[in-house]
Write a protein that binds this DNA or RNA. Structure first.
Lengths: 107, 107
DNA sequence: TCAATCCATAGCCAACGGGTTATTGATTTT
DNA sequence: AAAATCAATAACCCGTTGGCTATGGATTGA
């Protein structure tokens, strides 16, 4: 029930939280303070989101003095990629729009 | 704010709803009754989930007499694939586990 | 025509989730 | 040593969500 897919989809379904993750993907490691500046919500809210992201394996934290640096863990997205591929595989050559999707997936 | 990514992640974040979508991907077109049999929730609950899936473009419905047939629309997953690829692109050659992810994505 | 079936909608309720302010612990800075 | 800064936790609030039962509209079968 609480499998990997669930955890990933649930974690990424909140826009604020996803924005934090996106920022970490774009900009690399950042402190809670830096993230809070752009998050549009309070510092406790950001900390809570980071905790959830960490629980899903999507970020790492590194303590340095009184600040905590967070960084994205791209590998955690693998189950999501696998799930999408699995859904696509069920459809092998069933519909035309499969072509388009496969083109996107293969780059 | 309510962009395509949001709608997709939110729609797929519920396990019951995702299970319905997965079933449609695996088994192709099915009626509400058939889906209800395996969903583990009431028929109205299934109808509600189907409505949400439809709103996200993930399923189509086809009316035939008094029954409604639903089928998955794989193409709607494209934004999800694109988002994942975008996140990965931000990380180009930053970490070792990128290798692994790219291997999965390229099949 | 009347009964039965299929699905959607309405209305309700309990649980969850994301936000806030207040506070605490830990580390710097003065 | 005292003050200030940083991040996490606690306690709380409120809107959303996912479930249910009850009902209705449409179609099919008797």
């Amino acid at each position: 029930m609480t499998d990997a897919h669930d955890l990933l989809f649930k974690t990424l379904s909140d826009p604020t939280r996803r924005a934090i993750f996106e920022r970490l993907c774009r900009g690399g490691e950042q402190t809670v303070g830096a993230l809070t500046t752009h998050a549009g919500v309070s510092q406790p809210a950001v900390s809570k989101h980071l905790g959830i992201l960490k629980h899903a394996g999507l970020v790492r934290d590194r303590h340095e003095g009184r600040q905590t640096h967070y960084s994205a863990q791209l590998g955690a997205l693998a189950p999501l990629v696998d799930w999408t591929k699995e859904m696509a595989s069920f459809w092998e050559s069933r519909f035309d729009d499969l072509e388009d999707l496969l083109r996107r997936m293969d780059q």
